[in-house]
């Protein structure tokens, strides 16, 4: 089953994790042009930090700052049992 964390409220983002054999990071953002790369980096850095590689991460961003993206991803990883 998919795991999610976060909401679609302004300044938040929703993270959805699905099973995958490799790491896939997909970002959809209302500010994709300016911040798409930054969001992707935060997601990848966080996954690196926790040593998680086999997962598909979708991020539906509504203008979240880095610490919010990071927090939502960590919450989803914990909910999905990818980390403790």
């Amino acid at each position: 089953m998919n795991v999610t964390a976060g909401t679609y409220e302004s300044s938040d983002c929703l993270i959805r994790l699905s099973p995958s054999t490799t790491r896939k990071v997909i970002v959809e953002s209302i500010v994709f042009d300016q911040f798409g790369d930054a969001i992707q980096r935060v997601l990848n850095d966080t996954l690196d930090q926790y040593g998680v590689s086999a997962v598909q991460v979708e991020c539906f961003d509504k203008g979240a700052l880095d610490y919010t993206v990071r927090a939502r991803l960590i919450t989803a990883l914990k909910r999905g049992g990818y980390i403790e």
Binding site: M1, N2, T4, T7, Y8, E9, S10
Partner: peptide, 21 residues
Amino acid sequence: QNVTNIMFHHLVNVLAEHGVD
């Protein structure tokens, strides 16, 4: 928009509680 968001989020969580995604 926000109130709809809050209700939606709650309903999704209620469904998730019952294993419905």
